[in-house]
Design a binder for these strands. Structure first.
Lengths: 339, 339
DNA sequence: AAACGCATTCAAAGCGATTTCAATTTTTGA
DNA sequence: TCAAAAATTGAAATCGCTTTGAATGCGTTT
């Protein structure tokens, strides 16, 4: 069922039918009604490729996912938020996965050159992010989930990682902890740097010295976290509290604590960052987990909105959102043990 | 940079340039070389929409993700496998997310009518799956990840859930367990039914009666699993072993066991199904987790291959793959306790 | 009654690729 | 050497839509 068929069926020109369906004013109301009824009845939907070619808009936004490290469980949550909003505008989400760093830039180039997408979403940026710079060079609009240091303006949405860690660290200090381990993301990533900043700020505000042995910069997997936490717990004096970068990290730390024969919440405290997964509930852990919490799904949904604004012509320099992070105290964070 | 520009730049016709780039035989080798060099140098890439309109192929495959229940961590793993293979063919993956059941069918209709994708991938089918039937009615090619009972032939790839659970259950029976709880997926889903079949078969082979109180049919979240396991552990006689449907489920059961003051691997045994997540390693748990294992990422990659074959004209009736599931025994499964 | 304005409708020109069919050049064979 | 065959190139049609610019019909105004 093409536009032409529909037009012939109605005894109208393609022009009029097209206009009727797209809500142009210069078509008689009775005609419009007749057209939309026929379209509905015959199940007409414009051919996506033709529509895109004619309008010059791709009707899609793109995301490039780094296979190994980045993908993780966060992505599906984010996608879910993003997709919900985009679907209402009939905009597709095109995901591309790549294995290596080089492939990644090539993927952005490819998407841009073939005009497959109208805009893109960038994740987990580094302080100096070449993907962002590339997209700006290519003049592809994008919204950054996170922040980066660029000389040019960038549209972004980020959570307040610095504030989050400052509060969490301060709280642990309040509870008497002095040896607080930070299981952070890999160096270079903006969010990791921001978290470190918050952690450092809280420590120095109390005059607590920073011990590099208590900081880990690794991927957020339970395995790595387990190993890191395990070796940190062998330090003397050992850390009495952990700041875990993600829920997966928290699970690993959790196991390390138990294997060392200690109890979470009394012998050792922990506050983990929770991106809010429906299948992994901090409130329902045992003991319940204190968290810094921010829904990554909501971020996805909001970024979709920002993307639409961006495509609607809103200036990049006006698209910045910094979201506060909740600190939710539960059982896993308690007073420092008295030795 | 359009084809026209490139052709003018080279002093050739669009026809010749197009042919040269697409490897048609009727173009002089020297010309082809000159063209491809210029294309590379100028970074020419055919406009995706135009190409699609001209060829009639969408150059994309679609997936519809149910927001709430389905998305989960499995999806990103699967996507990663799928994407790796598709990228090599310059085929996009279009993901659409939906909230409700109704929206879902509408989404398939929409994608089909607008010819946005050449084929689709279906997940977690039910025994009688209306999405699959719809796609067949709409004549949209698709590969099913899982199986369904349809009168018409369907292309599918599935793991041997029945065999997997039969082995796992048998193994637990060998270890002396008689009260074996099954935390299965929701009723109606083919994989859940298949798993139940395997479980039942193993029980009845030993003449062990089936106790409905020991079977749960829920979503694979740690929270639900925790609650279900908790209440099962209050039964008398209590279950001495658990079959967990996923790693998330396993985490929930794990907590329930600990909270009940018991030890996994001695007081209670568990075998969990592992879809192999890079961030959650059964081998590295404490105690290490016995699993039935099958990589969902590999499944994604293979389904991409099948999809390409399907689009290449291979008959649907010849596209069936049943993958065996490994049983990996580790510390979480031990002999039944002697009361 | 002619002219004007307004509301509708339509024919045709894109959008940027592929592909059919025709034209041109080069090679081959007698 | 010249016609026929083969190799190479190009003009124009096509894909299905949007959109520009022109045309039509009809009630008002002068």
């Amino acid at each position: 069922m093409r536009l032409k068929d529909l037009a012939e069926h109605l005894g109208l020109s393609q022009t009029t039918v097209s206009r009727a369906l797209n809500g142009y004013p210069e078509v008689k109301e009775a005609t419009r009604l007749r057209v939309s009824e026929a379209a509905l009845e015959l199940g007409y939907r414009p051919n996506a490729s033709a529509l895109r070619l004619a309008t010059g808009r791709a009707g899609a936004v793109g995301m490039v996912l780094r296979g190994a490290d980045e993908l993780g469980p966060h992505m599906s949550e984010f996608l879910s938020g993003l997709g919900g909003r985009m679907a209402t505008q009939d905009i597709d989400i095109v995901v591309t996965t790549v294995a290596s760093q080089q492939e990644e830039l090539a993927a952005y180039r490819r998407l841009a050159a073939s005009q497959r997408v109208d805009a893109m979403i960038l994740h987990s940026p580094t302080l100096k992010d070449e993907r962002a710079e590339l997209l700006m060079d290519l003049k592809v609009p994008f919204v950054l989930h996170g922040r980066t240091n660029s000389t040019r303006p960038v549209a972004w949405l980020d959570i307040d990682n610095t504030g989050s860690l400052e509060r969490a660290t301060s709280h642990l200090l309040d509870l008497g902890h002095r040896r607080i381990a930070l299981l952070n993301g890999v160096k270079g990533r903006t969010f990791a740097e921001h978290r470190e900043l918050g952690y450092m700020a809280a420590l120095s505000a109390r005059g607590v010295p920073f011990d590099p042995a208590l900081m880990g910069n690794t991927a957020f997997t339970d395995e790595v976290a387990f190993r890191t936490a395990q070796s940190m717990l062998e330090l003397r004096p050992r850390p009495t509290a952990f700041l875990a970068g993600s829920m997966m990290t928290a699970l690993g730390v959790f196991r390390a604590i138990r294997q060392a024969g200690m109890t979470l919440g009394t012998d050792v405290s922990m506050i983990a960052h929770d991106d809010v997964f429906p299948y992994l509930n901090a409130d329902n852990m045992y003991p319940t987990m204190s968290t810094t919490r921010s829904s990554i799904r909501q971020a996805g949904s909001r970024i979709a909105e920002l993307l639409l604004q961006l495509l609607g012509g809103k200036p990049v320099s006006e698209i910045h959102e910094l979201w506060p992070v909740e600190l939710v105290l539960r059982e896993s964070s308690g007073p420092a043990p008295l030795f």
